[in-house]
Design a protein around this nucleic acid. Structure first.
Lengths: 206, 206
DNA sequence: TCACGATGTTACCGGCAGTAACCCCGGACC
DNA sequence: GGTCCGGGGTTACTGCCGGTAACATCGTGA
């Protein structure tokens, strides 16, 4: 081998950088030829590195989902009360998608990125499992209880969906979204309904 | 006109039926030519009726989302306590996606169905608005309060995400998923945490 | 009988994913 | 030093698909 093996990995990153740029500029419906042009090379090189378009998109998605997963893990693992940790994690998610909306759309809403969906599914699964473990330990439930797993999936979807809407409308500010979602999880609905209906009372929790 | 105008609509339905069959058989990545073949005609006819592939997919998606919206509206509007209505609606959603998983995947996860996304977005928006109104009136909030809107989007996403996961794993049975999600909305988390932490108490609500 | 318009078809264009065949250059071996 | 050889690179191709133009067909109204 005339060329060091390690260059492969570095090269791959350079190619992914180029793909990232062009996807963020022209949207996800981008041809392999244009990605190659952006990287200053030609198509067959891309195919040698990534196999096919799906492979390239999966690699691209993996980058972003891995980064997001670390951000969320850190936010969730840092100190504070449970509620503070949840608020911090939701806020971190919203901040991330707001800072790079094109990336977010590429991952979740791009029709062309069918192959990236695998990475997204994997991300959702990994984070949901993490969250389910947290919930289970918090409540003293068995690690894989139906309650913890269902709640984890539901909460992840709740934040994702609300974030999606918020990104589109920008209507309430980010802190308000975080607060409302956390309130919802912390039983604000039955509290409010009880206060209004007056059929039972419930101590308001800080 | 040699042919009655009403045939246009009927024809359209027949073509959509054919498209539906082929999509459910071969998945969403289907060529216009094969859809035309399934309908026993040729491509230009499809294009005269639907404009382009996006139009056809949008029409297909509209059919399904309209039906689902009606199902959910009915479930939500029928009588009973608030909690019963919510449980019934979540159950109706899960029953629907379970009865036609291919359709569900076509709508939410098909990469090729970029154009169908518009219909899905519209469905999510319409149902979320409905739910937001319900929440606002239930709690005596203004119709377009940040709380009601954020909660509505969040709840819709929560159910969608949990349903997605449940459809994949089938792990807890449907009633359990419905119950867990409703419990979550009804403040089961703070209740359980309080019981465990013992730092505050909270009346258990039926 | 003939013109007309709507329906349907064949045959094409442009573009894209993916690939085969070739080229070039630098080191290795004699 | 000359010759072989292998890996990075490119050009040029195939096959398929979305979309369309041009042509064929057939029933109707005058």
């Amino acid at each position: 081998m005339t060329v060091p093996l390690l260059d492969r990995e570095a090269r791959r990153e350079v190619l992914l950088d180029a793909a990232d740029r062009i996807v963020q500029r022209d949207g996800p419906a981008v041809s392999m030829a244009s990605i190659a042009a952006e990287a200053g090379i030609t198509k067959p090189i891309l195919y040698r590195h990534f196999g096919d378009k799906g492979g390239l998109y999966a690699a691209l998605a993996e980058r972003h989902t891995d980064r997001l997963l670390h951000v969320l893990e850190d936010a969730l693992a840092a100190g504070g009360s449970t509620r503070e940790r949840v608020e911090r994690t939701i806020g971190a998610y919203l901040a991330t998608i707001a800072s790079e909306p094109q990336v977010y759309r590429f991952l979740l809403h791009s029709a062309e990125a069918a192959e990236a969906q695998g990475q997204v599914q994997s991300f959702l699964r990994r984070f949901s499992e993490l969250l389910a473990l947290g919930i289970a330990s918090e409540l003293g439930l068995p690690a894989r209880s139906a309650r913890a797993e269902t709640w984890a999936r539901g909460i992840v979807g709740m934040v994702q969906s609300a974030g999606d809407w918020w990104l589109l409308t920008g209507s309430p500010d980010r802190d308000a979204v975080v607060r409302e979602l956390t309130d919802l999880l912390w039983g604000a609905y039955p509290d409010a309904a009880a206060r209004r209906g007056g059929r039972s009372t419930r101590r308001k929790r800080h």
